[in-house]
């Protein structure tokens, strides 16, 4: 029993944290968000470091590491709120790696791993995926729904960009209209990996929002004292820690099951996404409350985290949908309608 990262994993975490802190000073994130664009140079750099293919098998051009390493990167990308097209690309890669035929894997994975191709992943409800990150500039889109899974080339799909509240990431609505190839294999490990990547990002976002609240509560003085000395404020911060640590434990455990205990993966992933979706939003909301009026201004950075947390919470299954999945998988009564 050892619930901690190995030395190599610790090194990945440290490197990622330092690099992202340097490349994504908040002024830079804000500038990109307000322009609605990504940092192409930084993306190129991450590609050169092999990040997009960290979990992809070596024979398809990846680094052959696991979902644990992926969530380590994702948590730090969330903490930095890095405007790069990483998450959706990884989700598509996970899905193809899990459910694709050998031919599909050979066709798409090397490009996804190197970043030469861009991929995106969306959850279909009815005949449309309403919230697909980075679909507009993708080369290939994986669509996953109750009716089945498909890989569709961007050029064959209807892609309509949508403005969401999260201006640090680009989204689109996607319809395949019957185009593309079916993914015939078991997609669930891939979907679970994607869901865990989102939970990891939420954990990083929550960690940053909590740190901002704690720093502000130390610095801001009212009635002659730092507001963090008042229990109404300090207990709110303690609650943030409880929820952030919970999201982190669930995410790390889920990632570990992906690599070591696959029979538990689906349950663990839904637990992590359900908990982290609520925690991410609540921690950011409480952080805003601790900041008071300044936290409600556009000028303050917090709202970018708050919005990312909400959109991530809605992405690839909401907290309620994943809770229903948990009820289902942990043998609560009869299964009702659950997300794919």
């Amino acid at each position: 029993m050892n619930f901690d990262f190995s030395d190599d994993q610790q090194a990945i975490k440290r490197t990622a944290k330092d690099l992202l802190a340097d490349r994504f000073k908040f002024e830079r994130v804000r500038e990109l968000a307000e322009a609605g664009s990504y940092d192409d140079d930084a993306w190129k750099e991450l590609r050169e470091l092999g990040w997009p293919g960290i979990f992809i098998e070596e024979r398809y051009g990846g680094q052959g590491l696991g979902v644990v390493e992926l969530v380590i990167l994702m948590e730090e990308l969330g903490y930095a709120l890095a405007p790069v097209p990483f998450l959706s690309n990884a989700a598509a890669g996970l899905m193809i790696q899990a459910a694709g035929s050998e031919e599909q894997k050979q066709r798409w994975l090397p490009g996804i791993a190197s970043g030469e191709l861009r991929a995106a992943a969306g959850l279909v409800r009815g005949d449309e995926a309403k919230l697909v990150p980075d679909a507009d500039e993708a080369d290939v889109i994986v669509l996953c729904g109750a009716e089945g899974r498909r890989v569709v080339e961007r050029s064959a799909a209807d892609v309509e960009t949508v403005a969401t509240m999260d201006s640090t990431r680009r989204y689109a609505r996607v319809r395949a209209n019957g185009a593309g190839d079916a993914l015939e294999g078991d997609h669930r490990p891939g979907m679970s990996g994607a869901v865990l990547a989102a939970a990891a990002e939420l954990t990083g976002v929550a960690q940053r929002a909590m740190e901002m609240a704690v720093q502000y509560a130390r610095d801001r003085k009212q009635f002659g004292r730092p507001i963090g000395a008042y229990q109404a404020v300090s207990h709110s911060c303690a609650q943030m820690l409880l929820e952030t640590e919970g999201a982190r434990s669930a995410t790390y455990w889920g990632a570990w099951t992906a690599d070591a205990e696959p029979e538990t993966l689906e349950l663990a992933a839904s637990m992590a996404k359900a908990y982290a979706s609520d925690a991410g939003w609540r921690v950011c909301s409480s952080s805003l409350q601790v900041h008071g009026g300044i936290g409600f201004t556009w000028e303050h950075n917090l709202h970018f985290f708050l919005k990312r947390a909400k959109v991530d919470a809605l992405l690839w299954g909401s907290a309620s949908e994943h809770r229903e999945r948990v009820a289902d998988l942990s043998a609560v009564g009869v299964a009702a309608g659950a997300p794919a």
């Binding site: 963090g228 000395a229 229990q231 300090s234 207990h235 303690a238 609650q239 820690l241």
Partner: peptide, 14 residues
């Protein structure tokens, strides 16, 4: 919560 606020998060004591 006081212990967590003061000793884990480093918030000031009242």
């Amino acid at each position: 919560k006081n212990i967590i606020a003061e000793r884990v998060l480093g918030l000031p004591k009242l």
